[in-house]
């Protein structure tokens, strides 16, 4: 595995830090910090998903549902029970962890397509609950009046303030996850992707490790959902449907799911495409996504993050022949 170096991460963090200052002065990208808030939120989900799918090799189509759980539990607790938003967020992560454990423990015993089907079914069920439990969720009309976030009297009430909040969390989670990848736990994860049988003979508790990573990635999605809800002050089920679950997959596939940095790159591209650049296509948007997925799976199996290796191999081949 290529080591993930610290310098590029620091540079990236600095760029993120100065971006709103620059964007504010250029009219055409004035609204980009707002888009970037969603990029940061989605990154929280795709970072966990990349760990689960790219590194550990476990397919999940249920992460839109964990994202929704985070959003709805936070929203319900703060609006209906007046609970502090941070506490609500913590409660949402706890609830999501429990649900993820209950879903993951049996279904992670399944392999490949079956695991994908089980998590897909879970996602659909949760989506139906969001729509039907009108007393709690407001049904298809959604629920509003969700409070914003504040810390010690400091309100995250402007785009830039929320931007810095989201991206601080995102960068912390990114570094934490990079550390996991480059640790004994990460090594075992990558190993079980190739051979669960051999992992067992090495003393790795495969079943437990898979559940732990599944729960970790679900909790990140929940955190993302809560941040989304407290930013939008409104949620409705359509943000958490199967289309979104698939969009998450396209993000990590495009970036390259075997590399956590790829997940971030893919999230940037797909988010900007869907929030900014693809409006011209209107109803044909999903065709564009389909095309992207097709091109990536056929020509770029390791996504954008795999490009340097591919280019290197190509150059070697050229110089030889």
């Amino acid at each position: 595995m290529l080591r993930i170096r610290q310098t590029p991460i620091t540079v990236f963090a600095l760029l993120i830090g100065v971006f709103p200052l620059i964007a504010g002065r250029i009219a055409v990208i004035e609204n980009y910090p707002d888009v970037m808030i969603f990029v940061g939120i989605y990154c929280l989900i795709t970072i966990g998903l990349s760990l689960l799918m790219g590194y550990a090799g476990q397919i999940s189509l249920g992460h839109a549902a964990f994202y929704g759980l985070g959003a709805y539990v936070s929203s319900i607790l703060t609006t209906r029970y007046g609970i502090n938003a941070w506490l609500g967020m913590g409660a949402a992560m706890t609830v999501t962890a429990l649900v993820a454990f209950a879903v993951g423990a049996p279904s992670l015993k399944l392999k490949g397509h079956y695991l994908a089907m089980a998590t897909l079914a879970f996602g659909i069920i949760v989506y139906i609950i969001f729509n039907e439990e009108t007393a709690w969720t407001g049904g298809p009309d959604g629920m509003g009046g969700i409070p914003g976030l504040s810390l010690f009297g400091f309100e995250f009430d402007s785009v830039n303030r929320y931007y810095y909040l989201v991206w601080s969390i995102m960068l912390a989670v990114f570094c934490f996850t990079v550390n996991i990848i480059q640790s004994p736990a990460g090594r075992a994860l990558r190993a079980l992707h190739t051979s669960e049988a051999a992992c067992g003979a090495m003393g790795v508790d495969v079943a437990r490790l898979k559940v732990i990573v599944f729960v970790y990635s679900a909790v990140l999605a929940s955190l993302a959902g809560s941040l989304y809800a407290h930013y939008m002050n409104f949620v409705n089920p359509s943000s958490f449907d199967i289309n979104f679950a698939i969009k998450l997959l396209i993000m990590i596939a495009l970036g390259g799911m075997h590399d956590i940095r790829g997940a971030v790159i893919g999230t940037f591209l797909i988010s900007f495409l869907s929030l900014e650049w693809l409006h011209v296509f209107e109803d044909y948007e999903s065709i564009v996504y389909g095309a992207i997925l097709l091109v990536v799976t056929v020509f770029l199996p390791n996504g954008i993050a795999g490009l340097p290796t591919m280019a290197g191999r190509w150059l070697k081949h050229k110089s030889r022949g």
Binding site: P184, R187, C199, M202, G203, V204, I212, V213, Y216
Partner: peptide, 12 residues
């Protein structure tokens, strides 16, 4: 090194 797994601290 994977073989050393259970001799190593592994909590996330």
């Amino acid at each position: 090194m994977v073989g050393r797994h259970h001799h190593l601290p592994g909590s996330l």
